[in-house]
Design a protein around this nucleic acid. Structure first.
Lengths: 235, 235, 235, 235
DNA sequence: GATGAATGAGACTTCATTCAT
DNA sequence: TATGAATGAAGTCTCATTCAT
């Protein structure tokens, strides 16, 4: 309807409006859904609205996703859960010192996920987990757990290589996770975290850099005094 | 319009138990509403349930609050007490070193606020700020700003006294704030942050201690080097 | 709305229109539901239609019955399942010969149930059982089973007292049940069982009498030749 | 409009496999539809499912039948074959005693019709007669009436030959019909007639035998007294 | 003819809000 | 004031039917 279809253009690239759309449909729906879920939350997002934003009718949405919950899961899979494979691979392949690895991980995370719309999912889960236990379980299994595992592997690598002091892993993970989650929340709920004066001024890159410095200072064996390169050869 | 406090009641001795309860009504309703809003969010909290928990009927709720939205606003306003006066006074009076002050501040915050029901407001604001802009502004002014100011004063004190290395205040504040907010959220929404295995195991006191150690290690000029270096040789 | 409430009659019998209706409501809804279920089947009956016929709104129906299925169960309980207590009691109390008891049972069944609207439930279950397994299970447990038990008890009594020849109970039960079910179906689906010429002419009483004669002739020890009273003393 | 049979096809040898299938389409659809309508009822049967079972697409179904209702009507019409010509002929030719004829009739009915898929039409008519009055009339004329006539002729033959006691024909017919219909329904809707314990145990052959014995005991002038009285002394 | 993507009316159910008592 | 029965708008999901290819 809001899709201006040129009336008489039998050119070959007009590959059946239906057919072409069919392949694009799930993607369009997922994008519309992500927008709305992040903006209004899971419960407050109406299925019909998602469909309308994707330019289709209510019924079409349910042709591709059997329920609103499945749509949400698909959004999470597409935007977050599906990436851990790649991230784990990068972990295995990484050659440098662990402090550098942590720096790389956090800055890349921001580039690829934290700074995108998808990071709004975190906030969403925070408020809706209680009301949608199945969603919460899914998120636990597909996001929280892989994230914890990955961070723990990084920290453990540092400890194993003598770069980090031995720590209680449980709390170590949260030391890394907390600022990342916080940054996400801050970006998606400025009103509830940031001073108005900071609002436009907080630079995520710098924030991450600052957090990294603090975290590494806390983790590293000889914090800040000696240069890091002195210890890495030990590995 | 909501929250009708009768201006001139007969002398307190004369009011019947019923009447006394009448005055308590709004408070009981607000308390019940806080519990439920924090637990389930705004949309998922049913008006009737709030009323039932407060021991009145659905109709009565709407006698005191003209709508569910008004009830929500009243809940947030009611629970954002101006505790910063008291805390600022303590800041002025504190005599010890700034690392100790920071430790004191964070543990006391947990005792007095973080661990109480009122801390649920944080989570509420996070998820509902978008739908209640006026509330968000109110929260900004009454909570966010004073909190930032207080933390900044502490950090500045440390720098001024030569205990902390000079830092960019804006990010320093978040270094302190992030783990505190994260802890609150974690306690209120386990499903969305914590690995199930950690669920019952994360001890807020220890979490704060761990965070403090990391933060101080990052902030201090020569961060309690003594104690840290004593453990590191083992690595 | 279709309920003419006299405008100014504070007479005591105007016991609050709401209150008076509240007690009548479930009954009115059950009656409307029975009508419609029998007429159109379970699936084809719309909740709103039931409500409208009972003179209330959609929402009110769900105030009294938590779902369409529960409404149906209540209809079955009210009209059929609930009667077995009384019927079993009559069985225990019956003094005469078993052939008389069977005659009494079948004629009374017709008077109290078979000839009423409620007997349409049987037809309904026949077609909908497959699609509503929970309903089918309920009906099994609350209707089919008690009915089988009661008939079996009657037949067994006859056998035990030497009035009936020993028989395979399983098929004996169906010998009694089949004509009763058939009569119900016939009355509720004339088009599908009865010759048009018979339509208004089939007299259920006579039909039952005829069936009884056949059944008893088949069951009794010395069928039709000797009088029944000669054998009963043996019991 | 529905059921478009192409009037003048090229010679049968020339038609491609595809084309031959084309002619078979309506039949395949009707067969699939019969299965599903009998199993699940009209409303619960989905057009797409019928199409899929017939091996075509949803769209094709509507090419042959303009609506689900038309499909249903076609299914019923198609399956109400006029077998009564053949059965009446057998009646005329039968040489033995009328009790044997009745036994023969009932067992043959089960073999040839009762036990086949087509018997599901009975159940269908029962539940849907109300919604398809024209169909009901058709069924009346093509099935009910001939069946009544045939049974009445059998009974009358028995009376005329002095084998059966004189009876009111109208009710006599139902005495024979009831158990047959009941058996059909029972086989098609176990949940709504049979105790679960009987479910797998009811043997149609035995059921018919038992019913026959009862019916004949009721009808016969001195109903096989010999065999019966031989067993009764035991009581 | 055949396909299957798309549509949208319509069903059940929930719940904030009203109002007669 | 307090109650709680009643309302009806709104939301999720289904499925017969259409129609461009």
């Amino acid at each position: 309807m809001d899709h201006v279809t040129p009336p008489c253009q039998p050119s070959p690239e007009l590959v059946s409006r239906n057919a072409r759309r069919k392949e694009a449909r799930p993607g369009e729906l997922l994008e519309a859904a992500l927008d709305l879920f992040v903006e209004k939350g899971f419960a407050a997002t109406k299925a019909e609205e998602v469909a309308r934003r994707a330019g289709v009718s209510k019924g079409t949405l349910f042709l591709y996703f059997s329920s609103k919950e499945e749509l949400f899961k698909a959004v999470v899979r597409e935007n977050i859960a599906g990436r851990f494979v790649e991230w784990n691979a990068e972990f295995e392949a990484f050659k440098g010192g662990t402090p550098d690895m942590l720096r790389y991980a956090m800055t890349e995370w921001w580039q690829r996920l934290g700074s995108t719309k998808a990071s709004g999912i975190t906030k969403l889960m925070l408020s809706e987990a209680h009301n949608f236990p199945e969603l919460a379980a899914f998120y636990q299994h597909e996001v929280i757990q892989p994230a914890h595992v990955l961070i723990r592997r990084i920290l453990q690598r540092g400890v194993d290589r003598g770069e980090f002091a031995p720590i209680d892993m449980k709390y170590g993970v949260y030391t890394v996770l907390a600022p990342m989650l916080f940054l996400q929340l801050m970006m998606h709920s400025k009103n509830a975290c940031i001073e108005p004066s900071d609002a436009s001024a907080v630079d995520p890159q710098k924030y991450i850099a600052a957090q990294l410095q603090t975290i590494l200072a806390g983790l590293c064996v000889r914090p800040s005094t000696a240069s890091l390169s002195e210890k890495t050869p030990a590995a």
